[in-house]
């Protein structure tokens, strides 16, 4: 137990491992993209891992998660296997959406993972409906909805916060503010850049947290989740930064190298192990062991995706309507 950090060695290693799993899977995805194994669009979570880990660690197994198109990490952290995620990104039938969704549309009913949503802001009302279904059917579960700060400009953000508060729904709205909606800085798109003020105007609890500090996110998220479980929506802003371009097609004309380098100094995959080390929670060989375990998981996932099959042409028209319905 570290007094300074307030965690046990095992907790510390677990949080580090979770962030590392996301980082290494994302790095592998980027490489596979350059080899055209993953096609289309690919939005990496690299740099933002502390947010997803800190929040998702607080959820119970039955809780629902609704995420954006930058959701590979969230899916992995929610217990969807790296194999199934990687196969989905390859577009293979063994993927968590049968290869139909690709990188931006990861779904998994068993994990109550509701995407992978590529329309910015479009999934916020969906989270409201999940929360409403829980309330009306007397379930004690909550819904956790991730979105970027770009979604705050969409009308659905406002409709959703209003409905969630009006109907007192158990929804945690997690705004991962990485400062740029693709290439547009927050200050260039919002008259009010204090997102908590915006959210609080719907009369719900809103707070911000340093998204590069996994322990800070975990503590804030735990408090927020407790409030949500008591039956009220909460808005949590995770102040974070993505180290990679928006997608693989982004020339990054909107920010300079120095800014990126400055944020990289706060890379949670660097700073968190350092803090664990300083707190005396690490033992020799920890890093090597973790890296080896994670590398093996990623390599296994890639091999699985490579070996999997594409959906047969005969399936093109499946799942448009209920099976057996007239075409």
């Amino acid at each position: 137990m570290s007094e300074a950090l307030g965690i046990e060695r095992e907790q510390g290693l677990h949080l580090w491992r979770q962030m590392l799993r996301v980082r290494r899977m994302e790095e592998a995805s980027a490489e596979l993209y350059t080899k055209s194994k993953i096609r289309g669009f690919l939005h990496l979570y690299i740099g933002q891992e502390a947010g997803g880990v800190g929040v998702l660690e607080q959820l119970e197994p039955g809780d629902a998660v609704v995420a954006t198109y930058r959701e590979h990490g969230h899916a992995l952290l929610r217990g969807i296997s790296a194999r199934s995620i990687m196969a989905e990104m390859f577009g293979k039938q063994a993927g968590c959406s049968r290869g139909r969704g690709g990188s931006m549309h990861l779904f998994d009913a068993a994990a109550r993972f509701y995407g992978g949503n590529a329309i910015v802001g479009g999934h916020l009302p969906l989270a409201v409906g999940l929360g409403l279904a829980d309330r009306l059917q007397g379930r004690k579960q909550i819904t956790c909805c991730f979105f970027g700060e770009g979604a705050v400009a969409e009308g659905e953000f406002h409709e959703s916060l209003n409905l969630a508060r009006l109907w007192r729904l158990p929804v945690l709205f997690v705004c991962e503010n990485n400062l740029y909606a693709m290439g547009t800085a927050l200050a260039r798109s919002e008259a009010q850049v204090d997102l908590c003020r915006k959210a609080a105007s719907y009369d719900l609890h809103a707070q911000a947290v340093d998204g590069m500090d996994v322990l800070a996110v975990a503590a804030a998220a735990r408090a927020c989740v407790d409030r949500v479980r008591s039956g009220e929506p909460v808005f949590l802003e995770v102040k974070t930064y993505r180290f990679r371009p928006h997608s693989m097609f982004d020339p990054e004309l909107y920010r300079d190298r120095e800014e990126v380098e400055r944020w990289k100094e706060r890379d949670p995959l660097v700073t968190f192990p350092e803090r664990l080390e300083q707190a005396g929670l690490l033992e020799p060989g920890d890093r090597e062991r973790l890296e080896a375990e994670v590398a093996s998981e990623v390599a296994d996932a890639v091999a699985f995706a490579e070996a999997a099959e594409f959906e047969p042409v005969s399936d093109l028209c499946r799942f448009v309507y209920a099976e057996g319905a007239p075409e």
Partner: peptide
């Protein structure tokens, strides 16, 4: 949108 979430669950 809320109806989508309701229908999903």
């Amino acid at each position: 949108g809320a109806a989508v979430g309701m229908a999903l669950y």
